[in-house]
Amino acid sequence: MSRLDRQPPWPRRIGRGLLGLLAVGFLSVFLLLPLAVVFVEALRQGVHAYLSSIGQHEALAAIRLTLLVAVISVPLNVLFGVAAAWLMARFEFRGKALLGAFIDLPFSVSPVISGLVYVLLFGAQGWFGPWLGAHDIKIIFAVPGLVLATIFITLPFVARELIPLMQSQGSDEEEAARVLGAGGWQMFFRVTLPNIRWALLYGVLLCNARAMGEFGAVSVVSGHIRGLTTTMPLEVEMRYNEYDYVGAFAVATLLALLALLTLAIKTLLEWRYGDEIAAHAPGGH
């Protein structure tokens, strides 16, 4: 008789039931309820108020800016992630452990500090502040600052996803491609990339979710200029602080939908391509 068929005695079954109930109850109150509250609060004054507050000029500008920041920072971090994973999973060299630590570093830095460091570099009193001022280049309180802070925050996601997978896959297939006469890029595009595609997509998904949702780091470098340097999370904050609760929650529903979509795709990827994604601990922050 298999273990699963075995019926435990009734006191144990009650214990199991209570334990399960406790866990499900905790998850519901702690995770489901905040999600529900976002949608309910957004629709408190009806669908019309909801739609019109999303349709406002500032909200649309915030959506555009959020997409722009993600479109720039995610591909850059994908390139970095692939290069870093190739380096970490395929070569032995001095300082490798240190490099690995630096790749993970942004995960253990407060988002506020991630923004702060760029203010210290490019702000009016920063290292390059005077020079930038003289040449009329704005980084802080402008889009480049938002992009930089977002890149810093999301830098490890793709690399983190790829390194363990490529390490567990080993280099046999790539070596086989070399012995069969493939050049470096042929090997990369015909063997390496197809083998990591789902993990790469997974990394991009997580990287994007964070890039679009980042608050602390961009809040420091943004300057909160309505319509120009406010991303969606910043727009939520500003409306909330102006007591425009429906407006704040309305923009928040868009971000919540993005989160739900991310979770759905993530779950789908894990379900269909679990083996090709390898171990998926949550990617740091």
């Binding site: 998850l27 995770l31 489901l32 905040p34 999600l35 976002v38 979710a209 679009m212 949702g213 980042e214 608050f215 602390g216 969606m232 999370p233 910043l234 939520v236 904050e237 928040a252 971000l255 919540a256 993005l258 989160a259 739900l260 991310t262 979770l263 993530k266 949550p282 922050h285």
Partner: peptide, 12 residues
């Protein structure tokens, strides 16, 4: 759902 706090932007 466990990953929700990770996917949900912190401001939200």
């Amino acid at each position: 759902l466990v990953d929700l706090p990770f996917a949900l932007p912190t401001a939200v």
